[in-house]
Structure formats: structure tokens, C-alpha cells
Amino acid sequence: MATGSSEPKSRYRQYLEVVTGSLEEKKRWRQYKARIKELPENYRTAVEAMERYLMHFGPGDGADAASMFEDLADLFEQSAADGTPIREIFGEDPVEFVEAFVQNYSVGRWISREQERFTSAIDRAAGENTVKDDRTV
């Protein structure tokens, strides 16, 4: 079956993806890792450090995460091509940089959902109602 085909997935592939996750997302991940492997050592080290951080605090959704990592590869490939120093990419506070970067991918970010759920629960426990999208939560 060709990628992007309008053919329905076989029953076997549907079952396999339920068990292992999307095969397309796995392909995108392997492509990302191959791109990172080609970076100069200092850029690769920085990307791998950021990748570890993002695995804990980045988007939980597979498609959103795949897009984020592809954008990360784009950023570092371009920076390496331009000879941009690592410190110039991250600035003085790498955590601030990565948090600003991850904010572009908030859909599916599990920590944001949990923060909202926690805040909402405390508001309810305190007897306060919060309004979200014109309805009471």
C-alpha cells in the first residue's frame, strides 16, 4: 500500500497499528533520527539533549510530536549550514528556549492538559465556577 493512498488499510495493518502505533509516525521518527545523525557533533549533542527534554515535557500526541521533531531537525540543519553558534540558538537560558519552542506544539501536550485539569479541580473544590467556551466547567 502506498503512503498517502486512499485505499483502506488492511485488517492486519489496522491491528498492527493498534498494537504498535502508527507506522507512518514510526517512519517519520526514523527519518528524523537519520537527519540528526548527519549533523556536526556539537549540534547533534544539543539536539539530543533537547530531544530528551522534549520526551518528558513535549507533546504526547504522535503526529504533533513528529511535526515538532521534524521542525527541530530543520532548525538545527539550517543553523549548522549557517554556522550559527549553539549558544546563539539557545540563548543564555536553554530551558526558556525549549519551553518557547514547545509552546508552538501545545495540542496534545499532556502536561498542559493536566495543568488545566488540576486548576479546574481546585476551582471546583473552592466553589468557584470557571467559564470555558461559553459553558461552565
Rank of each mutant, 00 (worst) to 15 (best):
G4Y: 02
S5W: 03
S5H: 08
S6W: 02
S6I: 05
E7Y: 03
P8K: 04
P8Q: 07
Y12Q: 11
Q14Y: 03
Y15A: 15
Y15T: 12
L16T: 06
E17S: 02
V18G: 06
V18F: 09
V19F: 02
G21K: 01
G21F: 09
S22A: 12
L23C: 00
L23I: 02
E24I: 01
E25N: 07
E25C: 03
K26P: 00
K27H: 07
K27A: 11
R28C: 07
W29H: 14
W29N: 02
Y32E: 00
Y32C: 04
K33I: 02
A34V: 03
A34Y: 07
A34C: 08
R35M: 11
I36D: 01
E38I: 04
E38F: 04
E38D: 10
R44A: 11
R44G: 03
A46M: 11
A49Y: 15
A49P: 11
E51A: 07
R52T: 12
Y53A: 02
Y53N: 04
Y53V: 07
Y53M: 12
L54N: 10
M55A: 10
H56E: 12
F57S: 10
D61L: 06
D61E: 09
A65G: 12
A66K: 01
A66R: 00
S67V: 08
S67F: 05
F69S: 03
E70S: 09
D71A: 13
L72R: 09
F76K: 00
F76H: 13
Q78N: 13
S79W: 12
A81Y: 14
D82F: 12
T84C: 06
R87F: 10
E88P: 04
I89T: 05
P94W: 08
V95K: 14
E96Y: 15
F97E: 01
F97T: 11
V98K: 14
A100V: 06
V102P: 00
N104G: 13
G108C: 04
G108M: 01
R109G: 02
W110E: 10
R113C: 11
E114P: 08
E114Q: 09
Q115C: 13
Q115N: 06
Q115M: 15
F118Q: 09
F118H: 14
T119G: 11
R124A: 10
G127P: 07
T130I: 09
K132G: 06
D133I: 04
T136H: 09
T136R: 02
V137I: 07
